[in-house]
Amino acid sequence: MLAIKELYAGYGMVQVLHGISIEVPQGKVVTLIGSNGAGKTTTMRAVSGMIKPSAGRIVLAGRDITGKPSHKIAKAGLAHSPEGRRVFPTLSVTDNLRLGAYPRLTLGRPRGDVDGDLDKVFDLFPRLRERRDQLAGTLSGGEQQMLAMGRAIMLNPEVLLLDEPSMGLAPLLVEEVFRIIRALKERGVTMLLVEQFAAAALNVADYGYVLENGSIRCHGPAEKLKNDPAVRAAYLGQAH
C-alpha cells in the first residue's frame, strides 16, 4: 500500500536519512523503532510531504507521491498524525475533526458520509464527544492526542501515519492509545507507527523496522524482532 524506496532526506545541508526502504502492506501495522535522532520523524515527514526528499521514491496505492506538497499527498489518501499532536487550538474539537475530512471535499461537497464518520470517531473516543464544542487548546495532553488521531482517521486514509502517539502521556493514557491502535487495526486500517515504547509497538505491529543513524539496521516480523537478542538489548531494555 505504501512503499518507500531508497529514501534520502534531511534538513538543509544535514542529511538525516541515507537510503531507507520500507514496505507497508495493505491492512498491516508496521512499526519503525529506533533511538532519538535516528530519523523516525524525518521519515514520516518526508512521506507526508512536510519536507522534500532529496532522492528516492515514495509510492502510495500505486501512485508516485515523491516530493508532492502535503495537501496533495493528503488528497491521495495519506493521513499523518504528527509528532506533538499539532491540533488547531483556536478551533473546536468538532471543527478539528471536520478539517481532518477536508481532503475529501471537492468544490465544497464531501465524498462519503462525513457526519457518520464523525459519529464513529466519537464512538472510538467518547471523551471527545463530551468535549465536542470545546476549543482544542483547552484539552488535556491526552485528549489532544485522541483528537490528533481522530482527526487523521476522519480522512478515511489508505495509510495512517502515527508519530509518537504516546509521547508525554501518563501510563494509563498510553494504554488507552494502544487500545485505539488495536481497534483501528481490527478495522483493517493500514498503519505506519513510530513509537518510543518499542515493546508495546512490536506487540501491536505485524512487522517492524529498526532505524539507526538514518539507515535500516534490520527488519522482520514483529514476533521475531521482539525475540532478537540485539534488538532486545538496544531497544527493549526498559520493557522488562
Binding site: 507526508s48 512536510m50 506538497p69 502535503s70 495537501h71 493528503a74 499539532r86 478539517l99 481532503p103 471535499l105
Partner: peptide, 25 residues
C-alpha cells in the same frame, strides 16, 4: 464555513494545515 476554518487552521499551524489537505499557498 469549512473554508473559513481552513483559513484559521492555516493561520494557527501552516504545516499541520497542509497535512489536512489544505493548499496553504
Amino acid at each position: 464555513s469549512i473554508y473559513g476554518k481552513a483559513f484559521v487552521a492555516t493561520a494557527s499551524d501552516l504545516d499541520a494545515a497542509g497535512l489536512m489537505g489544505i493548499n496553504t499557498n
